[in-house]
Amino acid sequence: MDIKEIRSLAKDRMKGVCNLCSECNGIYCSGQVPGMGGTGSGRAMKRSYEKISQVKLNLKTIHEAKKPETNIMIFNQNLSLPLISAPVTGSEINMGGYLSEADYCKAVVSGSKMADTFAMIGDSGNPQFYIDGLNAITEENGCGIAIIKPRENNKIIENIKKAEIANALAVGVDIDGAGLVTMALLGQPVGPKSKAELKEIISSTNLPVILKGIMTVEEALLAVEIGAKAIVVSNHGGRILDDTLAPIEVLPEIAKAVKGKITIMADGSVRSGRDIFKYIAAGADIVLCARPIIWGAIGGGSEGVASYINHLKNELIQAMILTGANNIGEINSDMISYNFDI
């Protein structure tokens, strides 16, 4: 499908919840939670966009990188590019209601697989949304990752067992969701996790466990210590705490501390293949993407998701050609410049 067509259809179907602005900078949707915006003033979401936009690519054209390879391996899976569809729930609540939760999950999981990568499915105040995501993973023979809210440990472990039955590739806890008031209002309380609680979660399964919402070197080192297989450097899209730093600001120091010891994922305002490149250059092993995936699903179902991912892949290839990277492993910090302290 054509990206312009996907975006046009998505804009109509999202009924003003998302304006699909030419610059998806968090201004139009500021404060719209539920909805597509950042919490409170929206400054955290806007900062994530501003900071990733300030990172620039160093143009180089005297080299041999003519046909870059974008594939990577993660969790024994070969992906066509270092991108995973981020866990997003609440299609009927946050995205205008064009798709049911089950249809949204199916579009994202199957569309990601069509593009030779995979999706994360999420958890929410409505427990059925998690089941809808797991059903989509089951239909695609386990091609997906289940991310669970920081509920009480017995509830998390119960949901991990459900993910095991679905043959999910991995599981995770978005520990940055600890302050979600909407969960408590719906009778699904969440909260911070102690080191001991996280160890109990990790020891409860043979699946790789991901901790999503790491924004400090201290907690990245702790994740390594307790045996997590991956972290996601993320501020939850700026949707949980106003005035946080942007993921790209803290990523380089985190990567300096734990690169090679744990898989480093990152997300936050990924809108293009160039943004994927920037995060990889700043130290991530793989990048999560949400907004473009949402647009793809609502504008074109699974085909729309696959088309948008392939569009991002083509932009990534162009960035690699014009910076001199033959493969993802060759992308490094010398290929980017920025005018803020990170």
Rank of each mutant, 00 (worst) to 15 (best):
A290P: 08
E249K: 04
V233Q: 06
I160L: 06
K256Y: 03
I3Q: 01
P208G: 01
I240F: 09
K15D: 03
C24A: 11
I145A: 00
T205I: 11
K46W: 04
D267I: 10
L59G: 03
G26I: 08
I226E: 02
I321N: 02
T244N: 05
A230K: 06
L211P: 08
I254W: 01
G273A: 10
I317G: 06
Y104P: 11
N58D: 06
A246T: 13
K51Y: 09
S307F: 02
S203K: 14
N310R: 11
I147A: 00
K149E: 11
H311A: 02
G172W: 00
L211M: 09
A86C: 15
T244Y: 00
V250I: 13
D334I: 08
M73I: 13
D132M: 07
L241Y: 10
Y338W: 09
I254Q: 07
K259N: 10
W295H: 05
I131E: 10
M183H: 14
G227A: 09
G125D: 05
L169P: 04
N167F: 01
C143H: 02
G260S: 05
A115F: 01
N159Y: 03
I62P: 06
K212G: 05
N159V: 03
G142Y: 03
I226M: 05
G179Q: 11
D123N: 12
G144I: 04
N167M: 01
A325D: 05
G324L: 02
E249I: 10
A170I: 11
A266F: 02
K261Q: 14
G16T: 12
V209C: 09
N332W: 01
Q318R: 07
A257E: 10
G329H: 06
P192I: 07
L81E: 05
T244V: 12
M320D: 03
Q188D: 08
N154P: 00
L211G: 06
S8N: 08
P247T: 14
I156H: 03
I165S: 12
E5D: 12
H311D: 04
I52R: 09
K149M: 09
L251T: 15
G191N: 06
I27R: 10
M73L: 07
R7V: 09
K256T: 15
G324S: 05
M335F: 08
K313P: 15
K106P: 01
D285K: 10
F75Y: 15
T216A: 07
N326M: 01
E5P: 06
N310W: 01
N339Q: 12
S302Q: 12
L207H: 12
W295S: 00
I202R: 07
P150V: 05
T263D: 02
I309K: 05
I62K: 13
R7W: 00
M114Y: 05
K161I: 13
I131N: 12
H311N: 11
F75M: 13
V33C: 06
H236E: 01
E197K: 12
N314H: 09
I226H: 03
V190L: 08
L241K: 14
A65Q: 10
A284Y: 01
V233L: 02
